[in-house]
Amino acid sequence: MDARLTTEQRELRAAAARLADELGPGSVLDLDDADRVARLEKAVAATGWRTLRSDGASGVEVALVAEEFARGLVDVPFAGPVLADDLRRDDTAEPWTVAVDGEAADARDARRVLVLQGRRILAGRAGHAVAGVDLTRRNAEVSGPFEPVGEVSAEHAERWRALALVVTCADLLGAARGAHTLACEYAKVREQYGNPIGSYQAVAHLLAEGLALIEGSISVLRHAAWAVDELTPAEAVHAARVAKLYCARAARTVCETSVQVHGGIGNTWECLAHVYLRRVLASTDLFPAGLEEIDLGLS
């Protein structure tokens, strides 16, 4: 039993973190900086991380990149293309994503969309952007004609569902970490009654609880990401559902804490706290998990 990341995995995480810190939005205003987004898009495309699966990477590597990208609010596609790649496993230059419930997810600049129907893979086209809660990623309409482009085994389809849940969990965890760091930094500089607000227990305890929720999320996600390729497909989906339920609740709480710790400012458009919160709400809804799906016999 060894739940540690390998050296290569740590290096991948560090590289993803560097890229996100360098080119991700540092403020709400940055979200509209088209030059930055173009530079980010170019940098992400150059890494080849959108085709990690066809390059033989495990769910753990995919989750690490997704987590760091969400922590840095990376606002070019990753989850969509990486899930499309898992289905197609061929490296073409055309930007692909996947559709869920009739909408193309994570579809900025995407032209082609894959739909998994049972074991059949259908390809359609991405259309106009759809209004959504997330300010860093956007969904798009899907239009036909749908052409069959292949079929996956029943096992592959099940593992793909586990991977989809895991990618969204990693996004939740990353966004929670980003929101928490933002709040801790603010609590150290914002002063009231002559002291930084973080020195007051009422504020400090909220942030301490947030860190515990993040640590629990790391543990449950680490296992689910490993399980995608290593346990049976049913076990992998179960592990991913458990992780999704935990990470979704934890991430929302952490983001709400971040809004609260920022006080009045936290409730304004200019504060990044709501950008994290919105991303968490979107990732919770994308491939959702419900408590009624938890198999009590398996846990």
Binding site: E215, S219, V220, R222, V242, L291, I294
Partner: peptide, 25 residues
């Protein structure tokens, strides 16, 4: 729902203990 949530929580803790013990390696 309380029971399903307790199942999620206990599974999280099981995995958390494993991660922590691995770090001790």
């Amino acid at each position: 729902a309380e029971l399903a949530w307790a199942a999620v929580q206990t599974e999280m803790l099981r995995l958390h203990v494993r991660r922590r013990l691995s770090e001790q390696l």
